[in-house]
């Protein structure tokens, strides 16, 4: 009898206990589907992404969509107020979400958001960083690793060039950004565990 689903890609964290696990998932899926479609549209606009094989496009998106969403939706996490805004626009405090069962993942999301926002990236920089997050040659199941690696290197070079141009005295920003990649992997793993818990105990 799950009572809460503490993901901001949802209209509300409250779940009707009368509903079945399947219908809860169906509703949740309808909430986050538009955001996933936006990630796919974003991927299509990355120069070179459409030249990858269909299999590898799907593999990269399957593995990286959550990480892209984390970067795109850092604005939902208000670090100062310690609140999370859900899709309905309503804000919930960390304490409230914690009382609903949110744990380490929520804390880690705030940590990540705080560090990323501290870099004060422009929209263009954020967009290029997001492309680097998505095009990672070490994702599992890729059939043409070399092609993905070549595109990844091109994107990383472009990101370094843009950061160097925009922040000539702060090249450490580029290093800090690359160090966000393992942080995102860690968040992705924690999120997968939550999904597993949802599947086993909807």
């Amino acid at each position: 009898n799950r009572m809460h689903l503490v993901c901001p890609m949802n209209t509300s964290p409250y779940v009707d206990p009368q509903k079945s696990g399947h219908s809860i998932w169906e509703e949740f899926s309808m909430s986050f589907t538009p955001a996933v479609r936006e990630v796919v549209e974003f991927a299509k606009r990355i120069p070179g992404f459409k030249d990858l094989s269909q299999h590898d496009q799907v593999s990269l998106l399957k593995a990286g969509t959550f990480e892209v969403l984390v970067v795109r939706f850092t604005s939902l996490f208000n670090v100062k107020e310690r609140t999370v805004t859900f899709l309905s626009g309503r804000k919930y405090s960390v304490e409230a979400l914690r009382s609903m069962g949110a744990g380490d993942l929520l804390n880690s999301m705030f940590d990540f958001t705080e560090k990323l926002q501290a870099l004060n990236l422009s929209e263009e920089e954020m967009s290029l960083f997001t492309a680097v997050v998505l095009v990672s040659a070490d994702r599992s199941g890729l059939e043409n690793v070399n092609s993905v690696e070549a595109l990844q290197e091109t994107l990383i070079r472009a990101l370094r060039s843009l950061i160097t141009k925009n922040h000539p005295n702060e090249i450490a920003i580029f290093t800090k950004l690359l160090l966000k990649l393992p942080d995102l992997r860690s968040l992705n793993n924690m999120h997968s565990e939550q999904l597993l818990a949802f599947k086993v105990h909807p």
Binding site: T33, V40, E41, Q57
Partner: peptide, 27 residues
């Protein structure tokens, strides 16, 4: 649980969203 995306329907959403792109490529 190595593939949550497939198990929870994400792959289906991704494939459908990519479809236009894939059809273009096949042409």
């Amino acid at each position: 649980f190595s593939d949550p995306a497939s198990n929870l329907g994400l792959e289906d959403i991704i494939r459908k969203a990519l479809m236009g792109n894939m059809e273009e490529k096949q042409e």
